[in-house]
Nucleic acid binder design. Structure first.
Lengths: 195, 195
DNA sequence: GTCTATAATTTGATAGAC
DNA sequence: GTCTATCAAATTATAGAC
């Protein structure tokens, strides 16, 4: 069971981690922003590593929930939904993807967090791969997962780069290039048999 | 003038920053790895922020030097050289791009470092854009820079994702998808007029 | 230039009152 | 549950001997 206070703490911690990195904020910063004392944070999350693992776990869970069934809808609608998730994160105070950022600092994180980051990556790759299979009729196998991984990576990179310029338009422009080049499939190309 | 000791310190600091993030190592860690005392680090770099700015600046300078003239060579050779720079970083003990990682933790870095990160991004985008102009005959303008930015972002994302699996082959597979899809141009496609 | 010594602050974390 | 009080360790940084 997740309490309201746990959620408040996680919300605030997530915002800080997404803008400063997991090692870029302290329990004191976090407590001050939430409006409680550092010792109270420890009551809910004994160690910072456990807080971080909970952060990443919730993040992945929410993504899976938002994305939903990868076979429910047309290819372009599903991809648009996927892209919208990344875009919304970036638009929300210029945040980087939480797990993308954790992947960057990976060696500085406790093992439990590293595992959660890997789960996030896998959730993305498997969902996009499922969309590609259902929407394009591509055969199963490494090839589809390789393409899914490339799409995921490109969007993570676009977030990373766009964050610097503090402009969501930069992200949109990169996504447009990904789509126009054929990396990210769209309905038009599929109907034309180019994908 | 850059002394030998300054270079040793920067080399070690760079390796640590690339695997743990800039906030993931201390002057104590750094000094121990170099084989000197923390106070001696301060002699060369008064503050950690100045060390970080020097790190990013040297990193960008080396990139520019390695890449060379963007109009000297064929399109596919130039792009191959560009990709090889990222690949070499990843292969070298599984490191993430220094400035890509700094871009992730951006809000936690002093302003001087943020400026250097922006310079790195600009160096990449302008070099790739120049290659695209010379090699594909594309007109100048926002469009070429948008494509260059997308290519840079995709490679940064590929490094980020590949680092998790500790396998350079994952990076190669993503680059292959980028190339096959047409995001990263190659000579064959250009000669066929598809780009 | 490199060190010892140390300051001043911050950090993650615990004990125990309420 | 939340707090005060506190800890031990780590952090960036400085002063000054050698």
């Amino acid at each position: 069971m997740i309490t309201q206070m746990q959620n408040d703490i996680l919300d605030t911690a997530q915002a800080m981690a997404q803008s400063r990195g997991f090692n870029g904020f302290s329990f004191r910063d976090l407590a001050a922003a939430v409006g409680i004392k550092p010792a109270s944070i420890h009551y809910y999350f004994p160690t910072k590593g456990e807080l971080g693992a909970a952060l990443a776990s919730r993040y992945t869970g929410r993504l899976v929930e938002i994305l939903g069934d990868p076979s429910d809808g047309r290819l372009d609608a599903l991809m648009a939904r996927y892209i919208a998730v990344f875009r919304a994160t970036l638009q929300d105070d210029g945040r980087m993807c939480l797990c993308g950022l954790m992947a960057a600092e990976l060696d500085a994180l406790p093992e439990a967090m590293q595992t959660e980051v890997a789960r996030f990556v896998e959730a993305n790759v498997s969902w996009v791969a499922a969309v590609l299979r259902a929407g394009t009729g591509l055969a199963d196998g490494v090839e589809v997962r390789a393409r899914a991984r490339a799409i995921f990576a490109a969007l993570e990179g676009a977030m990373l780069v766009a964050r610097g310029s503090r402009d969501v338009a930069a992200f949109d422009a990169m996504v447009e290039v990904f789509t126009a080049s054929g990396l990210i499939p769209n309905a038009k190309r599929v109907s034309e048999g180019q994908f």
